[in-house]
């Protein structure tokens, strides 16, 4: 079997604050295979966006930095130790990124075509006409009708869904193998949301694109993902194939999230919630980060951090008191 396209090992991110260093991302590990869609799920502040920013080396502040771990691309280079100039080739060239709000993430004063050709011409030395042809082709691929006409349009002339398609086109301009999609459908209407998700699956199909999909919406995960990693308080608390996570989750937080889905729970007409608030950076609980909100928490949970255990080859869990029966077949 070929090595994973992307392999993240024990990736940690810390922020320097006046109260000392604080951990934003804590020893996060996962693998992304060719053509796989990995869902990164969690509440806001759980570290999912920060993990992805760390992968492409674009942390939002100079006070925030990677403190450990590795990000291996195609079994070869470790992105955390790459020179900035080599890292730039990775960004856009190997890993593309799209964001939640296409209106603010596209340059309002440059045409869509200009933003696509700019990337193409920077990464591949091609002439203007060739870049333009490729740009039209990409716009066509992301489902923009009449791309030869629309290529000179500005972002504000596109509708919300079209803008998200345009942003995907900009991100895919240089044929990256990996696409990081940070809440790509959150700001969109439900109908448009479905179209964008279909487009992503389509692109995975045609280009064998690997996608990391950041979302807080388990509905989205259920529709498109192959693998799911659930993050809480900067750590991955459970990771496994979608089917197992949705139907047979063991971490109390995961089951809590699933119960929160309006259609997922058995209590009709009443949406369940998880009591309490997610931790903020200043007040990370000791032991298991979830224990103050967990119904199954014991003294042990407050004292020692649960180890991340692969109890099956593809299913990782970090919990002292897992819910349900665990088939420990994979445990060494």
């Amino acid at each position: 079997m070929s090595p994973p396209v992307l392999s993240v090992r024990d990736l940690s991110v810390i922020a320097k604050t006046d109260q000392g260093p604080q951990t934003l991302v804590d020893r996060v590990s996962f693998e992304l295979n060719r053509g796989e869609i990995l869902g990164l799920v969690g509440e806001s502040g759980s570290g999912k966006s920060m993990t992805c920013r760390a992968i492409i080396g674009l942390l939002p502040s100079s006070r925030i930095s990677i403190s450990g771990g590795s990000v291996i691309l195609r079994g070869k280079s470790d992105l955390t130790h790459l020179e900035e100039s080599d890292m730039r080739k990775v960004r856009g060239g190997d890993i593309g990124m799209i964001f939640q709000n296409p209106s603010s993430h596209l340059d309002p004063v440059m045409s869509i075509g200009g933003q696509i050709t700019e990337s193409i011409r920077y990464h591949h030395q091609v002439n203007r006409a060739e870049a333009r042809n490729r740009a039209i082709e990409i716009l066509h691929q992301v489902g923009i009708s009449d791309p030869a006409q629309r290529i000179d349009d500005y972002p504000h002339e596109f509708s919300g869904g079209m803008r998200q398609r345009a942003m995907i086109a900009v991100a895919l301009a240089c044929n990256p193998e990996i696409l990081i999609a940070d809440e790509p459908t959150t700001a969109l209407d439900v109908t448009v949301q479905a179209q964008i998700l279909r487009l992503l699956m389509d692109l995975r199909e045609k280009r064998e694109l690997s996608i990391i999909l950041i979302t807080h919406d388990l509905g989205v995960v259920a529709q498109v993902c192959d693998t799911v990693a659930v993050m809480y308080g900067g750590r991955i608390c459970e990771r496994g194939p979608k089917r197992e996570i949705i139907l047979d989750a063991h971490h109390p937080y995961t089951t809590g999230l699933i119960d929160c889905q309006p259609s997922g729970g058995s209590h009709r007409g009443l949406v369940k919630t998880i009591a309490g608030q997610p931790p903020s950076q200043g007040s990370m609980p000791t032991g298991c980060a979830f224990h103050p909100r967990c119904a199954h928490a014991t003294k042990e949970c407050a004292q020692t951090e649960p180890a991340a255990v692969d109890y099956q080859p593809n299913h990782m869990l970090a919990c002292h008191h897992p819910i349900g029966e665990i088939n420990e077949g994979g445990r060494a």
Binding site: I56, L58, P60, R88, K89, V90, R91, G92, G93, G96, M97, F99, S104, H105, L106, D107, P108, E118, S119, Y122, H123, M167, V170, A171, A173, C174
Partner: peptide, 10 residues
């Protein structure tokens, strides 16, 4: 938009 431009490797 500047973040997105950096994420394109510019």
């Amino acid at each position: 938009q500047a973040t997105a431009a950096r994420a394109r490797g510019l």
